[in-house]
């Protein structure tokens, strides 16, 4: 963890809302395989991406997350058959809408990662962390009171 700390003291804080059946297991595999990835991610496990209320994403941003990542099963591989298909529609609308009102598109990321893709999980976290690091600390929607 020490080598990931930068000198100015700010580290991106990323909430990863992941599906229990694929990405969470993928993260587990990354850990078991001892693949290194940035420690900036906080994982929140949900039964399915279809269960995620878009409000969770906004709440995370409001409460101080610099970026939010949502990851679930690849389309067609949902444990509940269609959960991620519904989620895909929800998030397509949400991401476009957030971009429209002036949110940086890279603050909210959506991806798929299956249980066997430990390496991909590490790559995703690396990529998302780098993107959020480039953006700097979140300023929009951050609750100060």
């Amino acid at each position: 963890m020490a080598e990931a700390m930068t000198t100015d003291g700010w580290e991106p804080k990323i909430i990863a809302i992941v599906c229990n059946w694929c990405t969470y297991a993928g993260a587990d595999l990354a850990g078991i395989s001892r693949i290194q990835y940035p420690p900036n991610v906080r994982i929140l496990r949900v039964p399915c991406t279809g269960r995620i209320n878009p409000f969770y994403i906004l709440k995370a941003l409001q409460e101080g997350a610099d970026g939010v990542l949502v990851s679930g099963c690849h389309p067609g591989e949902c444990h509940y058959i269609t959960g991620n298909y519904s989620a895909r529609r929800k998030f397509a609308m949400l991401k476009r809408y957030l971009t429209y009102i002036g949110m940086e598109p890279d603050r909210t990321m959506f991806t798929w990662c299956s249980a066997s893709e430990g390496d991909r999980f590490a790559q995703i976290i690396k990529g998302v962390t780098a993107k959020v690091r480039d953006l700097g600390p979140a300023r929009k929607f951050v609750k100060t009171l």
Binding site: P75, G76, Y85, R88, R89, A92, M109, T111, G127
Partner: peptide, 18 residues
């Protein structure tokens, strides 16, 4: 209602691939 249904080929251009 659009969010109560889906199509398998819905657009996914917003999905992040590392």
């Amino acid at each position: 209602p659009p969010l109560s249904t889906y199509r398998e080929n819905d657009k996914e251009d917003f999905i992040y691939h590392p």
